[in-house]
Amino acid sequence: MSAEIMVRMHQIHKHFNGMEVLKGIDLEVKKGEVLAIIGPSGSGKSTLLRCLNHLETIDQGSIEVAGEFFAVESQNGQSEYAAATKARKIQGHMGMVFQQFNLFPHMTVMDNLIEAPIQVKKQKKEEILPLAEFLLQSVGLSDKRDAYPARLSGGQQQRVAIARALAMQPDIMLFDEPTSALDPELTGEVLKTMRQLAENKMTMLVVTHEMNFARDVANRVMFMADGSVIEEGIPLEIFGHPQQERTQSFLRNML
């Protein structure tokens, strides 16, 4: 039995001012799978994630999300993303959590959660409230529903950001270094929330420097350096017996 492929990126190339930051990346994520993308700063892992959800655009290659083409290569070799209406539908499959949280500072925690379902999905407030309350409870922040983000710690803000993304009921969650902006003692609570999500079989792509998380939670680990995938496999292989020299030296420095 082969699980449904949720994300397929094929031969992704991306340039920034003449510099190639993604050099032909292939990537597949199945439904319910957690893929951790690790690698040194500047390896292109965040850019790859941002290309997947069209916060950046790829130059060449193709992207499929939930069985639909999001970006395809046209005749002239340049890739193009789907037109607005279709693009928005495909993006709706993906929720995103940012390094800097990016909560809406002028809205309470609860309003952050229900804003997009009301504006985008045209749901009524009463319809979305039960889910929003459930999500706040599962990230352990029910008591903060009427607080403004600036009153919360970084870890709390990031958990609200996760709940906010989940309120749109995505099929795939993208995490772009979700704990990198946090004080070390606050990363645990965010990782715990992400772990719960993985246990509930959410499809996840996680760009991270948290090696323990990658080892314990991910089904697969991808090591990137200089815009290329150096090595990929199950955590046991990557962390236990890395084959490539680059992977070995990276892990030596990280662990």
């Binding site: 916060l55 928005r88 993006q91 995103m96 909560l103 997009a116 985008v120 999905k121 993304a165 749109m168």
Partner: peptide
């Protein structure tokens, strides 16, 4: 970016 990823126009 956050608004965009939540599907807002």
């Amino acid at each position: 970016e956050a608004a965009h990823m939540l599907g807002m126009s």
